[in-house]
Design a binder for these strands. Structure first.
Lengths: 136, 136
DNA sequence: AATGACATTAACGTAAACGTAAAATTTAAG
DNA sequence: CTTAAATTTTACGTTTACGTTAATGTCATT
């Protein structure tokens, strides 16, 4: 009797697999490695091998990008994931994290303001439409 | 008897006044005009004169930037402010506005997810700290 | 009219974030 | 083993969003 029904979850990915999945170029992925955002292992033949962890990290990078963070900012944030274990380091990281949290909450607030602006414009437009339709 | 106590509100601004107020360079402002984001009037001597409206617009541009929109995206959004008056145009603009609204709400959601991530990391770090401090 | 502060256009420079092409390897398939 | 598809590094190119002179012009004061 088969003990594990869990099908052999693919543990690793090639560069083009990730590129396809996230709809980015392989160049982009290599570039992220170049600037230290990713550090995939290599095969005996020197080809990149990405683990689940690498993939999760890439996802985080792309999310950061969508939100307007620069790659260097993203790098700083990502470094919170890889900690030595020194308590001092951890404390510093915590402080840094609080700062980033505030920035993010700031950003959320600003987006909400922008949303309000757009909603106001929408109202304006709807009224204008009514006027124009009314006097047709 | 003086009828109006309202002090002569300054209606216009020079390029450097705006630059100082928003903490950007004059070059940046000229660049925004160059790509059609601003269209200030000119003095007889050809110097730029910015109205309240121009100023409000600049503010919107800068807000968009802080949120990671590209200048061309911002340009699209800004065009919602200047409408012909044609009902068809207005309808199109409304549709476009709905789209932008959804994008913004998407962005807000993603930021909230990012915030959750960071909060989780913080928890992790706090636990780790406790362990380390405990076994000192 | 001359001085100094601020303004103008023109044009070249730059950093970030990739795109793209070339030449050489590696891997998978037959 | 051979071939095609995928990957590698190298290196120059491109776009966006301005920075940075340079050469002149304008404006308010003296």
């Amino acid at each position: 009797m088969p003990a594990k029904t869990k099908r052999k979850e693919k543990e690793t990915y090639s560069i083009s697999e990730l590129a396809k999945e996230f709809e980015i170029s392989t160049r982009t992925i290599r570039y992220y490695e170049e600037i230290g955002l990713l550090s995939p292992k290599r095969t005996s033949g020197n080809q990149r091998v990405f683990t689940k962890r690498d993939k999760a990290r890439l996802k985080l990078i792309l999310r950061g990008k969508k939100l307007g963070f620069s790659l260097s900012e993203i790098k700083e944030m990502i470094e919170m994931y890889d900690l030595a274990g020194e308590t001092e380091q951890i404390k510093l990281t915590l402080r840094y994290g609080e700062k980033k949290l505030k920035e993010i909450e700031e950003k959320i607030k600003e987006l909400e303001m922008l949303r309000e602006d757009l909603l106001a414009i929408r109202e304006m437009l709807l009224n204008r439409l009514k006027e124009l339709e009314g006097q047709k």
